[in-house]
Amino acid sequence: MSNSYIHAEGLCFSYRDNDGKEEHPALKGVSVDIYEGEYVAVLGHNGSGKSTFAKLLNMILEPTGGTLVVGGMELTGKELTDDELLQLRRNVGMVFQNPDNQLVATIVEEDVAFGPENLGVPQPELRKRVEDAIAAVGMTSYAHHEPHRLSGGQKQRIAIAGIIAMMPKCIIFDESTAMLDPNGRKEVLDTIRLLNRDYGITVINITHYMNEAAEADRIIVMNDGLVLMEGTPDEVFAKREELVAVGLEVPQCAALIHELRRRGVLLEGTGISTPEACVELLQRALKART
């Protein structure tokens, strides 16, 4: 975790009205670094600019100000050629919210092949990439199924496989679990963790679920088009008041610790973002009492 993969400085973006006159600023100067191999969660309530930020990273939207460097490629201040755009998008993949709206083909394996087909990957590498990608998300037995017969979580895993098959360095998950049921969400989160740990892919997970954010190495909290705070989950969830002030909550386990401390219970330690860490904290406190 040494090299900065994504470097943004004073990044701005405004949506324009249809007549092009009025501007609605969505990002007002975002400066962050995301490092190679990192698992970052971006938190924020609706309209905080977190999805806009994600769409700038692979130039689905073009920033209106600031600098953005991705994988050593300067993206701002000039017109990108088509080749540069393709290069960027094969390196920075994106998984969207609605699994139905990102699957193109009527057979699972053909959908997974869509990305590498576009890149012109020749046979037999193409076949191998597709099979590996489907195996990586644990869907090998579904390779010849029709996507519309799968569950939401399975569809989303296929969408992820479609991105993996392009062999990206970084994958952005734009609220990819928001439309899934708890089981589907777990499937997708397990897959994300696996990609980050075993494949060394840089992961940016944009979400408004606190429990999901707690799994990340680092959390970036956005509010009103700006970065409000960043830090490890423990550091971020320690600032409960600030989070509540911008319409966010801390995970239930962290809330419990905060509540106990407010009532004067002495709890030593900083691990509050996962239930396991909280249990440890409480056990230690209980032992100290007896």
């Binding site: 393709l86 869509f114 990305g115 576009n118 020749p122 076949r127 392009m166």
Partner: peptide
Amino acid sequence: SAMECRCYHGGEGRTRLN
């Protein structure tokens, strides 16, 4: 958007799985 993210740029230079 999803197709753009997956590098779709028309039929030129495309290979086929099957």
